[in-house]
Design a protein around this nucleic acid. Structure first.
Lengths: 220, 220
DNA sequence: AAGAAACGCGAGTGATCGCTCGTGTTCGCC
DNA sequence: GGCGAACACGAGCGATCACTCGCGTTTCTT
């Protein structure tokens, strides 16, 4: 008996509720974090009863997972794929400009993103599946790093990617904690930090993508 | 009516219990984080009843605050003051070596440190008083930065200190998440990141402490 | 020795959380 | 119009948490 799950066809009203609930969940998550967020608060924020919430989500974690997937997808749709070979071949300064700015902007408009990946660091909270955000982003960073600096060993590449990503998350938290010109200044610090860290590994100039070795060139 | 608090003199047995409880709290905090830690679990870990715990601490947060103070003090005792003018005048590479290594080592032996400062980032958890760790460390970084690069404006100094500290915390999390040679490798990445980020601000060489301007010198 | 105060216990309290369930309403389809 | 399924509600269940309380034990003081 494979415990077959019937597809449970959804009406238009249901789709709207799901979107409403995810929106509310995003708000609550980035206000109090994932662990401290209560399903009742999410339901209240969405203007529905707790029972209604559980008509669309089996449990609290599923909300975070679904929201993570939505955010992940929304990020790609909004800015296109950022970790492309074209961007990887840019001079480092420009590459960071092209990648970091959209990432930061997206996170300013969707602060729930940081709330989710932040709690994913704490043990005992969410499990593997929720780490779609963390791991898929890390994977893309690692891939771009492989394009840009193919000489790096796999182990070293993994470490540099993890460190660069952690650095970005730390900077992102600072960026989101400030506003206006102060926020802009912190964006500059994030770029400066990434530049200073990555330059020795990937070079500062443009790189050729056809051959295996990095080839430092033009821009400072 | 100033609601006078009687001093509640403590016996030797009590002092031992407090130390026991703080030790247990450190273990629980770095296993599950502050928010997810339960006072009953701390009491159980310490081998006492919940009631006994509350004989020495008014509430859960007080445990974190007290533990933070202890860790703060223990760090200074264990390695002496690291953010000294002498260290500040060292060539950047050596300065990082001298400061980062003891900090990392201390955190490896007291992983509760990271658990506390990590949760302090999440809203709705602990309040100001607990941030002794975060703010006092940040203050020291900022002070050293003032010694090293007096040309920086106060605002810029604050941002660089915050970014450098955040960078360190992110790296520390990676260091603590690994073991053996992998851990050592991540320590290297932390230093590399700090070096790359700070070099443009503070120069790579030794600096004179008598005059106001930084003076790049010897070592590479 | 004897009283006071610190220590110690653990069942229990009130609040809150994730989640369920019985009941009623709305929608899609014939 | 009518029927089944999706939707919606909200009181409430069981579990858990921070914290208390009454009472017994150990230690200090005189």
């Amino acid at each position: 008996m494979p415990e077959e799950q019937r597809p449970r066809r959804r009406q238009a009203r249901g789709e709207r509720r799901v979107a409403q609930l995810l929106e509310a969940a995003a708000g609550v998550f980035c206000k109090v974090g994932y662990t401290a967020a209560t399903t009742n608060a999410i339901a209240r924020e969405a203007g529905v009863s707790p029972g209604t919430l559980y008509q669309f989500f089996p449990n609290k974690e599923a909300i975070a997972i679904e929201l993570g997937g939505i955010l992940n997808q929304r990020m790609r749709e909004g800015h296109g794929e950022l970790f492309t070979p074209e961007n990887a071949s840019l001079p480092l300064r420009e590459m960071l400009e092209v990648i970091v700015d959209p990432m930061i902007e997206f996170n300013c408009q969707n602060p729930a993103f940081l709330a989710l990946v932040h709690d994913s660091d704490v043990p005992g909270t969410v499990v593997m599946e929720h780490d779609v955000l963390h791991s898929s982003l890390l994977e893309r960073v690692e891939h771009l790093l492989g394009l840009r600096a193919p000489a790096l060993s796999a182990a070293e590449r993994g470490r540099v990617a993890a460190m660069a990503f952690g650095l970005f998350k730390a900077g992102l938290a600072l960026v989101l904690a400030h506003e206006g010109t102060e926020r802009d200044a912190y964006v500059g610090e994030v770029k400066a930090a990434l530049y200073g860290y990555l330059a020795p590994y990937v070079g500062t100039g443009a790189v050729a993508m056809t051959e295996a070795g990095p080839a430092p060139a033009a821009t400072a």
